[in-house]
Amino acid sequence: MQNKNRNTLLFSFLTLSLVLLLLLNISLGSVSIPMKDVFNSLTGGNASKETWDYIIVNYRLPKAIAAILVGMGLAISGLLMQTLFRNPLAGPDVLGLSSGASLGVATVILGAAFLPPVFASFLLSSYGIILASSLGSFLVLLAVLSVSQSLRNTMAILIVGLMFGSLTNAIVGTLTYFSTAEQLQKFTFWSLGNLGNLSWSSIVILSICVAIGLLLSLVNIKPLNALLLGENYARSLGMNYKKTRLVIILATSILTGSITAFAGPIAFIGLAVPHIAKLVFQTSNHTVLFWSTLLLGSIIMLICDCISQLPGSDITLPINAVTSLFGAPIVIWLLLRKRKMMN
């Protein structure tokens, strides 16, 4: 019962932080807008300057929503991977899913020139890129999964994931070698990760994809809890393992694929956030972890985006650099702290 009170308190605190960070995130940028005006503008009123309203609605708000969607989606797909592979070091980037998505996008951006124009224009649309990117991560995940079936060793699964990552990176490298400077620039910008530049229509598409992915994860909360005991016990508890695994893979591919398509391959969120959630809430129960991972994912992504604005300067850092700077030390710290849990 004490746990329940603690969880309620934590959830309220996190929700409040999320709202404050959202306001802070929108107020920061090359033009800094006071929080009070941000609040007025978002709640239907007007900011004290008309240009501020324009900036908020067309640039800052979509970017903040993108950050929240990316944070939620990647964090949840990390949680799914960690439970499915029974491996605390699993995550969309570690298992090569982001690389798979990159391969899909690279094939489309860099290879469209070789296709008839009708196909090329479809593929270069946001739908085409999402499809290619989801397909890329789906294929890599299937490959990792099929190899991991014959490898019971969890370390081996990670190494296989890394190898698939290198393999897809090599193919991407080869593709870039044969592409024009213009294509290359487009791909490089994409690969640095970017939360801005998303139009409202892209935000809508991304929201739908993330919502589908999250819904598929939500209906699997019970089987995910069963999987905490391992595959054999989960089966003996009445779980349809093959079906569950397929749905989890689908959810992860849709989440990672669509997010990577729009925002580029963003590192460490998927790996680090579920651990922070497990540490803060001291539980493995996915009913609690699902919501806490969602909240913490959005919060951490908003913080990373705030940092990438470098408050007080005109420079914007690539978001991928910030999440890595932020995530890598956290993972090392977690490993040192939680040695026991990692076996």
Partner: peptide, 18 residues
């Protein structure tokens, strides 16, 4: 068992899943 934060009570409670 795979690594997790499950308490003994939660582990036993999983038996009720069916």
């Amino acid at each position: 068992l795979p690594p997790s934060n499950l308490t003994v009570w939660e582990l036993i409670a999983l038996g009720r899943q069916p």
